[in-house]
C-alpha cells in the first residue's frame, strides 16, 4: 500500500487516527446525551413556566449560542484553572459542548412543545390526565417527534464542532491528523482520510435517524 500510494503513513498511524476518532465519538456521545437531557428540561421550563423564566433563561441561552465555541472552550478551560479546579481538556470540552448542545436543544424542545395544538392538550386534560401526565404522554412525544430531524442535524453538528476541543490539546480526530501531518507532510491525503472518518461516523447516524423517522414518526 505504501508503494501504491507513495505515502509514509503506517498502520500504526491509522490506529492513532482511530483513537482520535474514538475521542471524537466519546465527546460527541457525552455532549449529545447530557445536552439533550438538560435541553429537554430547559425547553420545558421555557415553554411552560411563564414568560419571566423564559426571558431570563432565553437570555442566558442566547449568550451561549452567540459566543463562538472556540472562545467558550478557551475561556472555560482558563476559568476553571484560575479558580483552582483545573480540568482535563476532555472534561472541559465535554462540559462546554454539553452546554452548547443543551441551549440549542432547548430551543428545539420549546418549538416542539409550541407545535402541539392547544385542543390536543385540552383533550388529554379533559380525560382527567394531570398536567404532568399530559406533558409526559402527549405533549413531549408529539412535540419531540416534530423536532426530531432538527435534533439529528444538531447532534451531527456537535460531532463536527467537537474538533474545536483540539485547541485545548485533546487528541480527537482532527488533532490526531494534524500531528501526523506535521510528521509526514502529507496534508491532503490525511485530511481526505479524516474527512472519510467523519463521514463514516455521521452517515450511519443520519441513515438510522431517517429510518427511525419513517418507521415511527407519522
Amino acid at each position: 500500500m505504501n508503494a501504491l500510494l507513495n505515502t509514509s503513513l503506517t498502520g500504526n498511524d491509522m490506529l492513532f487516527l482511530l483513537k482520535g476518532a474514538a475521542g471524537t465519538l466519546a465527546l460527541t456521545a457525552i455532549a449529545v446525551i447530557a445536552g439533550s437531557l438538560i435541553g429537554v428540561v430547559l425547553g420545558v421550563v421555557r415553554a411552560e413556566r411563564g414568560w419571566l423564566l423564559d426571558r431570563v433563561l432565553g437570555g442566558l441561552c442566547d449568550v451561549l449560542r452567540s459566543v463562538p465555541l472556540l472562545i467558550q472552550l478557551i475561556l472555560f478551560n482558563s476559568f476553571v484553572s484560575l479558580i483552582g479546579f483545573p480540568l482535563s481538556a476532555f472534561a472541559s470540552g465535554a462540559i462546554v459542548l454539553s452546554l452548547y448542545m443543551a441551549v440549542n436543544c432547548a430551543e428545539l424542545v420549546k418549538a416542539g412543545i409550541a407545535s402541539v395544538p392547544r385542543m390536543t392538550r385540552w383533550a388529554s386534560r379533559s380525560l382527567g390526565m394531570t398536567y404532568a401526565c399530559d406533558l409526559r404522554y402527549i405533549v413531549l412525544p408529539i412535540g419531540l417527534r416534530t423536532v426530531f430531524p432538527s435534533w439529528v442535524g444538531l447532534s451531527l453538528a456537535i460531532m463536527k464542532d467537537s474538533a474545536l476541543v483540539s485547541v485545548l490539546g485533546f487528541f480527537e480526530l482532527l488533532k490526531s491528523s494534524q500531528t501526523l501531518i506535521t510528521r509526514t507532510q502529507e496534508p491532503l491525503l490525511l485530511l481526505l482520510i479524516v474527512g472519510a472518518f467523519y463521514f463514516a461516523l455521521s452517515f450511519p447516524i443520519a441513515r438510522l435517524a431517517a429510518r427511525f423517522e419513517r418507521s415511527t414518526l407519522r
Partner: peptide, 12 residues
C-alpha cells in the same frame, strides 16, 4: 367525558 369539534386524536 368531553368530545371536541376537532376530534383531537393523539396522532402518535
Amino acid at each position: 367525558g368531553m368530545v371536541f369539534q376537532q376530534w383531537n386524536c393523539f396522532p402518535h
